[in-house]
Write a protein that binds this DNA or RNA. Sequence first.
DNA 1: AGCTTTCATGAAAACGTTTACGTTGGCGCC
DNA 2: GGCGCCAACGTAAACGTTTTCATGAAAGCT
Lengths: 350, 350
Amino acid sequence: MTTKKATIKDVAREAKVSVASVSRALNGQGGVTAETLDRIRVAAKRLHYIPDNAARSLITRRTHTIGALLPDLFGEFFSELIRGIDLAARSRGLHLLVSSSHDGADEAATALRAMQGRVDGMLILSPWVDEAFLEANMPGELPTVLINSPVQGRSVLNIDNRGGAYAMTEHLLRTAGHKDIAFIAGPAGNFDAEQRELGFREAMKKFAPQVPLNIVAGSFTEESGYHAGRELLKQAHRPAAVFAANDMMAVGCLYAFKEAGLQVPGDMALAGFDDIPIARYLSPPLSTVSVHIAELGRNALERLSAQMDGRQPSDRTDVLGCAIAVRETCGGSRDASSKNTYQPARTSDP
Amino acid sequence: MTTKKATIKDVAREAKVSVASVSRALNGQGGVTAETLDRIRVAAKRLHYIPDNAARSLITRRTHTIGALLPDLFGEFFSELIRGIDLAARSRGLHLLVSSSHDGADEAATALRAMQGRVDGMLILSPWVDEAFLEANMPGELPTVLINSPVQGRSVLNIDNRGGAYAMTEHLLRTAGHKDIAFIAGPAGNFDAEQRELGFREAMKKFAPQVPLNIVAGSFTEESGYHAGRELLKQAHRPAAVFAANDMMAVGCLYAFKEAGLQVPGDMALAGFDDIPIARYLSPPLSTVSVHIAELGRNALERLSAQMDGRQPSDRTDVLGCAIAVRETCGGSRDASSKNTYQPARTSDP
DNA sequence: AGCTTTCATGAAAACGTTTACGTTGGCGCC
DNA sequence: GGCGCCAACGTAAACGTTTTCATGAAAGCT
């Protein structure tokens, strides 16, 4: 076995050609006889030659790697997103450098900085990233795609939170036939939360303008959902349905209702947002708004790739649609329009 | 803004020193006056200097990056694992290059190959990786840690599948007081599945030697669990409890029991393995064996790091303990032992 | 004062590639 | 036979660092 790693020089010597020819041959740029190409290939194989990426990147100014900056995400969302990104990246011969689980702007900034020079492009999904942050922590103009961000004038890919919330609210009102609907909001300042609330408000204004808005605070946690649920139960005039800004709050809310002896959806309907895998296993199964996360990841990477090749401007905003998954908690008739296309969870143990 | 990236030469010129001094100063190796160090720092900041990693790696032979090779994992497992790895990596100043979602030995091999030269070490969790695979696809002796692998003679970190299954079986028999327990096995050839079955068999032999073994086939999917459940219901002598080799099968099994109008755990007790997040939200909440996945990731990275620094041999096998999470489906008395505490790893040197 | 030792600094050689630019030599064409 | 052309190949200069070694100056010791 070779103790030292073989370099291009070794291959050249072995094949009795110059290093330039080896480079040309192995990169398939032509300019070499079929015969010498063969000799070089054989030599390379014999020496177990693997080109040094550092040296190559140094001269080429390309790393063939893209970076992903992600916050501390909930399980399924994270893995699906990475899955989508990774698959798309691999099909383009790109590598994926991930830095996740950031909890705060400082951590995100350090992570972003540390990636400089290691990647050809960045995928950023982070609640702490805004224009100022980008300006401060991204000197060169590295191609970048922001996921789910309110930032303007950059390449951004968003989930249609507003549209999804609107659709679910409409469904609760018109299809399921509930008169008044309460909304459990997400944390203030959170982009998703705001967009979802906006969608709810718009749908209410449109389809139930006479009903006073009933919005209680929440923070996207199961516990806050539980408390919101109890609060709603104390109201003089109980709503007929509750729409939580995310599934975890819906879960907490469901507990509160069960605890109070209410039937769901008989006494009170319920809906969430996200379609986390737990949703379909609750009893009764939770109606929710479903986002195609892997698709989001794939899409984001493709945008980035296009931008890197100059095939796309770096200031476009796109929105990725989501579908409502009608299960049991929202009550009403489970008609054929139920777009519940969720597939059974893939299983895999290590 | 500088349109071109600033190099170390620019900084040297700006600070009126040599490149060598800049390198020394910025890497904190001493050998520079406090005064010149300051001048260099100022110059570097003004020029927005960021050292080129490619150049640095080229001369240093270090990338400060570790690679993670993962199969197409189930949501929570994947994200928790990455989380543990990433956190530990970051605290050590290491980057994380991930390649996931492989579906087959070929894909894994290509991915592994592509990482050569980009990383200082590898973390591998893959059902297709065995000694031969490693031999064929990992030329140089890159520090490597295998997660949950039957491979011997390398650095391996395993989950204590056998011990966990043993403990759960013992709990079902002795604490919950069930007489005969059926087991739903995982797919043949799967390392985890085999170890779990082994644990079950050992515990049965030890604590219920007179009871004939009742093992039905499954494939780790929810559907296979459902079918196994129905099969068990058809048996002339129904078992008092069912232990599924993973949670997804337990979920399917639970459906089958509910469908047949059985009370769980009243008419039939049930337990799973993995403690996926869904488990606690089922009704009734599923008793299961809990693995500390993030811990596994952290541990694996620390091992790798130790190996890279030569602080640890590259042929040790460790086992990471798991705890049983007693919830409601397993019946019996919910005693004080239902806490979910982490048990320190047992180590064993082959 | 004369000696050695320490210490900050600079010059230059690596590291392993790619690639612009020469240098061959064979070939066709007048 | 001289001319130019083209394809195959080699030479050498990049790329941006780190690191070894040499240099000189200051400081410590007798």
